[in-house]
Amino acid sequence: MNALSLLGRYFGASMRSQMQYPASAMMLTLAQLASTAIEIVSIWALFDRFGAVKGWAFGEVMFFYALIGISFSFADFLTRGFDVFGSDFVRTGAFDRLLLRPRSAALQLVGHDFRISRFGRFFQASIILAIATGTLGFVWTPQAILLALWTIAGGVAFFGALFVLQAVMAFWTVESLEAVNALTYGGVYAGQFPISFYARWFRTFLIFIVPLACVSYFPVLAILGRSDPLGAPDWFLPLAPAAGFLFLALAFLAWRFGVSKYTSTGS
């Protein structure tokens, strides 16, 4: 059985086991929706007090917020196994069990769990996207839709890479997961604003080191049909999400290194 159909099996199993407690799945989804929705209140409060900033209004920022939120919700849905890797696999020794099976550990971790509740964030972000569309009077051309899907794909790869890196860190310390929270949840937060809000060193970091801007700022400019006020060439904007996939590939290299470290120290 090939990897993709095996993932399909895992998916079915995960859905069946969550459906053993349908009320709980429902509640968690709603809680996710509420908890992510409340964050936008603080952004709204800032715009309410200070007005538009550097040519960006609340409607556009909602656009950033929504696309990042959708990307993150999918990544969170697909890479839950990496997210809980330190606590549920390394600390408990359950990772040994994955290594005892004739499949790649990464594949088994993706299949470990698909959390229905992650759709809470997805719904919330979709609602924000609808509101942003209305506020800006944005027209969804087929080209814009394709570009948005491509952006989301790059974003899923990007956040997936962060979850993989978080898991890699667990090989060294299971107590360190907070650090990557800075990059995952902190990434969602940082990606909600156009990078022109940030200082130069931070923009450089978000473009070249942890390429968050490549899966949010640049492609969203392309979708909105705007040029980059910071001077990135127009042709680059729609191509930027590819950086998310490159980042994911690098994360898996680090993952392989982590696994080999694990098998040589056993801890």
Partner: peptide, 29 residues
């Protein structure tokens, strides 16, 4: 120890982002 360092890193990140966002709003208006 690693948890403390990780926590510190998280704080720096969120702190820096918050400071820059606040600055953008304050200085822009």
């Amino acid at each position: 120890r690693a948890a403390a360092l990780a926590g510190f890193f998280t704080q720096c990140w969120f702190g820096a982002v918050h400071v820059m966002v606040l600055a953008a709003f304050y200085l822009g208006a």
